[in-house]
Deep mutational scan, measured.
Amino acid sequence: PDFTLHWNGITIHFKGIDEEQFRHLRELLDRGVSLEELEELAKELIK
């Protein structure tokens, strides 16, 4: 499924991740993950 997340004025689209992965990403963003960390995470998910 696809998810869209609005965070700090940025709209991020996640394609092909499951709800569990999306929930994990939201928790990280709510905790204050940096954009660099988010990019690293995205690379991991894409593999």
Score class of each variant (00 low, 15 high):
residue 17 I to G: 03
residue 29 L to H: 04
residue 36 E to A: 15
residue 47 K to C: 09
residue 43 K to G: 09
residue 38 L to E: 00
residue 45 L to W: 08
residue 24 H to V: 13
residue 44 E to K: 08
residue 10 I to K: 09
residue 4 T to M: 05
residue 37 E to H: 11
residue 25 L to E: 00
residue 28 L to C: 05
residue 9 G to H: 02
residue 28 L to E: 07
residue 5 L to V: 06
residue 10 I to W: 00
residue 12 I to A: 02
residue 27 E to W: 04
residue 5 L to T: 01
residue 37 E to N: 07
residue 12 I to S: 00
residue 35 L to F: 10
residue 43 K to D: 08
residue 19 E to T: 05
residue 29 L to R: 05
residue 6 H to A: 04
residue 26 R to K: 15
residue 1 P to V: 14
residue 20 E to K: 11
residue 37 E to Q: 13
residue 34 S to L: 07
residue 8 N to A: 09
residue 9 G to P: 00
residue 36 E to Q: 13
residue 5 L to E: 00
residue 10 I to M: 08
residue 18 D to A: 06
residue 28 L to H: 07
residue 34 S to V: 05
residue 22 F to D: 01
residue 33 V to Q: 04
residue 44 E to V: 06
residue 36 E to Y: 07
residue 33 V to T: 13
residue 13 H to S: 10
residue 23 R to D: 11
residue 30 D to P: 02
residue 1 P to F: 14
residue 14 F to C: 06
residue 39 E to H: 13
residue 43 K to A: 12
residue 40 E to R: 15
residue 15 K to R: 07
residue 40 E to F: 12
residue 21 Q to A: 12
residue 34 S to A: 09
residue 2 D to M: 13
residue 28 L to R: 05
residue 33 V to L: 10
residue 14 F to N: 01
residue 10 I to H: 11
residue 38 L to S: 00
residue 29 L to K: 02
residue 44 E to N: 13
residue 33 V to D: 03
residue 31 R to N: 13
residue 21 Q to F: 11
residue 8 N to L: 04
residue 33 V to A: 14
residue 40 E to W: 11
residue 33 V to E: 04
residue 42 A to D: 02
residue 11 T to V: 09
residue 5 L to I: 12
residue 5 L to G: 00
residue 39 E to K: 12
residue 30 D to V: 11
residue 11 T to I: 08
residue 2 D to H: 13
residue 8 N to D: 06
residue 31 R to C: 08
residue 4 T to K: 09
residue 41 L to R: 06
residue 5 L to S: 00
residue 41 L to M: 09
residue 37 E to I: 14
residue 34 S to T: 12
residue 11 T to C: 08
residue 42 A to N: 04
residue 3 F to S: 00
residue 44 E to P: 00
residue 31 R to P: 02
residue 43 K to P: 07
residue 14 F to L: 15
residue 19 E to P: 05
residue 9 G to Y: 01
residue 6 H to K: 05
residue 11 T to L: 05
residue 4 T to F: 09
residue 31 R to A: 11
residue 30 D to F: 09
residue 43 K to M: 08
residue 8 N to Q: 10
residue 14 F to E: 01
residue 6 H to P: 00
residue 17 I to H: 02
residue 7 W to G: 02
residue 38 L to W: 05
residue 12 I to Q: 01
residue 31 R to K: 14
residue 37 E to G: 05
residue 14 F to I: 15
residue 25 L to C: 02
residue 17 I to Q: 02
residue 21 Q to D: 12
residue 37 E to Y: 10
residue 47 K to Y: 01
residue 27 E to R: 09
residue 44 E to T: 08
residue 14 F to Q: 01
residue 15 K to F: 15
residue 36 E to P: 10
residue 41 L to E: 03
residue 2 D to R: 05
residue 2 D to C: 13
residue 28 L to P: 00
residue 43 K to W: 04
residue 4 T to H: 15
residue 34 S to P: 12
residue 24 H to R: 10
residue 3 F to V: 02
residue 44 E to H: 13
residue 35 L to C: 05
residue 4 T to I: 10
residue 18 D to T: 15
residue 45 L to P: 04
residue 5 L to A: 01
residue 45 L to R: 04
residue 39 E to Y: 14
residue 28 L to F: 07
residue 22 F to C: 03
residue 37 E to S: 07
residue 20 E to M: 09
residue 44 E to S: 13
residue 19 E to M: 05
residue 9 G to M: 00
